[in-house]
Simulated scan of single mutants.
Amino acid sequence: MSITHLVTHSGGFHADELLSSVLLTRLFPKAQLLRSREPAWVSPAPAKIIYDVGGAYDSAAQIFDHHQRPGPMRPDGAPFSSFGLIWAHYGRAYLTAMDVPENDLDEIHGKFDEKFVLPIDLLDNGAIEPSVAGPLSALSLPSLLGSLKPVFDDMSPSADDDAFFAALPIARSFVEAQIRGLAAKARARSIVARAIAETAEATILELPMGMPYRSELDKAGADHILFVIHPRGEDWTLNGIKLSGDTFEQRADLPASWAGLSDSALEQASGVEGAKFCHNARFIAVASTREAIVKMAEIAVNEQK
């Protein structure tokens, strides 16, 4: 039997059922999304998926609540929210609907769960303090979505529903952007790995375009590579490589004499015709041709000796 209704609770909303709705409305676009606490609606039936309401977790009956005691837990003991439950059961189907290649499904499903779903599960269940959640991007999303709730003195009987349905496309944009980013990293992996192999022992990695590369450098143990070059529009860029995602420190900086210079001033300082720009923090430089950017990269490497 096809799904005709997606049912979550009425009243104020949280990130978990809003993000669950993002997944389910893509998978079941013809189903009616209904917000209710009426017993008739939150009781399981073959044509309904019920989530974040109903007092039970039973995937066979298509009911995914987490507020009952004991609530559903992950294998490691972390609590699920409705988003985690929906992702566990429908996430792979959602990724397929997002055109993620089959070979990448398991990896992207796991990464999205770890980086995006789990933090929301923990915060929704009070298993992590808001003070810890605030600085972290994956955990600030519930606060951002919560800011879309109606103000306290909006007495319109439809205020909560209106705000929920207005927030839904905004939440969708965050989820889809995350998935597209993970899928892009998966596509980039083989390109970067091939470029690393072709680079051999050289210190400059050339890529055909801008793409994620640092994790593949770490995986390959290519610590000898100091800079990355690639075309960007009509120009070429020279990039430093961060030591990790938690710091701005690089394996090697661009020359201090280039910092903050552009055009003729940078050409004079570098001795490279076609040099166009170097960031003051010395992590990126731009030139008008490949020949120019290669010369700049070679100069930057020689300064490390």
Results as ranks from 00 to 15, higher is better:
203 T>Y: 09
166 A>L: 02
78 A>M: 09
168 L>R: 01
153 D>C: 06
86 I>Q: 09
94 Y>F: 14
185 K>H: 13
170 I>L: 04
123 L>Y: 02
133 A>M: 04
78 A>V: 04
118 L>I: 00
192 V>K: 02
120 I>F: 01
179 I>D: 00
202 A>L: 13
91 G>A: 12
108 I>C: 01
190 S>G: 01
194 R>Q: 13
203 T>G: 13
90 Y>R: 09
102 E>T: 11
184 A>D: 13
147 S>F: 15
125 N>F: 00
80 F>T: 10
130 P>Q: 05
121 D>M: 04
182 L>P: 00
76 D>F: 02
94 Y>G: 14
195 A>N: 02
176 E>Y: 08
121 D>F: 03
107 E>C: 07
167 A>L: 03
167 A>H: 03
155 M>C: 12
106 D>N: 07
86 I>A: 08
130 P>A: 07
158 S>E: 15
118 L>R: 02
181 G>C: 06
90 Y>I: 07
138 A>D: 05
100 V>E: 11
118 L>W: 00
75 P>M: 12
74 R>E: 15
106 D>T: 11
168 L>S: 01
193 A>T: 12
88 A>I: 06
191 I>E: 09
196 I>S: 01
144 L>C: 07
180 R>Y: 06
91 G>P: 10
133 A>I: 05
160 D>I: 07
175 V>Q: 04
112 F>V: 11
144 L>I: 14
170 I>Y: 01
147 S>H: 14
97 A>T: 08
190 S>E: 10
157 P>I: 09
140 S>P: 00
106 D>F: 02
98 M>H: 05
188 A>R: 04
138 A>N: 04
141 L>I: 10
79 P>M: 10
76 D>R: 04
204 I>G: 06
171 A>T: 08
126 G>V: 00
98 M>R: 15
122 L>Q: 09
121 D>C: 03
130 P>E: 06
174 F>I: 01
90 Y>L: 11
142 P>E: 05
187 R>K: 12
